[in-house]
């Protein structure tokens, strides 16, 4: 469904992506994990057309989308839940949702779409006349996901949906992501919470400083000692003792 070949992105003199190759098949949940500044968000931003790649190809359903305008890409069927939620604070919850469908319709959205996302996130229905800025972090994350769904995407890009949320809420958000996937939306998930991400996704890519260093079946990656050490915070047996450091 999505295929990225040799993607390079520069921010001025900074070479942010140094040749990314990545595939997402129809119906999958694929995760992209890695440390801060590895280039995960940049990858999503170039798929969404917000950063223009300096070279490389991005094919969506065998159609090149690199360098296309963001609204065209949304219309083609890719929508993004940006990192840090980025809710429109002065708009109400329902207006936020309508904005999610902006590229698709321009003006009016069928209430069926609203009902679908309200059924998925009932709390948003209760809050629909409240300003986006007054929601709690967890509610905002749900709103951000719901807003992206309003574009009726075939491929949903999620950037760090667990960021700043309490563990119980992360659990709940991930449950919803699974549900969205079951309803037929392909998902590309960027996460720092590698543990959660690897358990949700079927395949995973690991990024380091602008490159993909490891990729494969996420169940295999969960067991990989290198991944364990670097991203899951699990240590080798002889180093599991609490670090004894003097104060």
């Amino acid at each position: 469904m999505l295929e990225i070949r040799g993607l390079h992105v520069h921010y001025g003199a900074i070479h942010a992506l140094k040749g990314i190759d990545l595939r997402v098949e129809q119906g999958e949940i694929v995760t992209l994990i890695g440390a801060n500044g590895a280039g995960k968000s940049t990858t999503l931003m170039s798929i969404s057309g917000i950063h223009a790649p300096s070279s490389g190809r991005i094919l969506f359903e065998d159609f090149p989308v690199e360098g296309m305008r963001p609204d065209r890409i949304v219309r083609a069927g890719i929508s993004q839940v940006p990192e840090g939620r980025r809710i429109f604070a002065r708009l109400t919850v329902q207006e936020n949702l309508r904005m999610g469908a902006f590229a698709r319709s321009g003006s009016s959205v069928g209430n069926a779409d609203l009902d679908t996302v309200y059924d998925l996130f009932p709390i948003l229905r209760e809050r629909r006349l409240q300003r986006g800025g007054t929601l709690s972090g967890g509610e905002q994350q749900m709103l951000a996901i719901a807003r992206a769904l309003m574009a009726r995407p075939k491929l949903l890009l999620l950037d760090e949906p667990s960021l700043g949320l309490a563990p119980i809420l992360v659990e709940r958000v991930f449950e919803r992501i699974r549900e969205i996937n079951r309803s037929g939306v392909t998902i590309l998930l960027v996460e720092q919470n590698a543990h959660m991400a690897l358990h949700l996704a079927s395949r995973a890519y690991v990024m380091e400083t602008g490159r993909i260093v490891i990729s494969g079946d996420s169940r295999v990656l969960v067991g990989d000692p290198q991944i364990k050490r670097a991203y899951l915070g699990e240590m080798d047996i002889d180093t599991t003792q609490k670090p004894t450091r003097s104060a």
């Binding site: 963001p70 809710i87 604070a89 002065r90 902006f102 698709r104 992206a148």
Partner: peptide, 18 residues
């Protein structure tokens, strides 16, 4: 509403296809 959205968060607005 689109103007408000752009002012509130330009990046998010772009990502939403505004």
């Amino acid at each position: 509403r689109a103007w408000i959205a752009v002012r509130d968060d330009e990046l998010a607005a772009n990502a939403m296809g505004i």
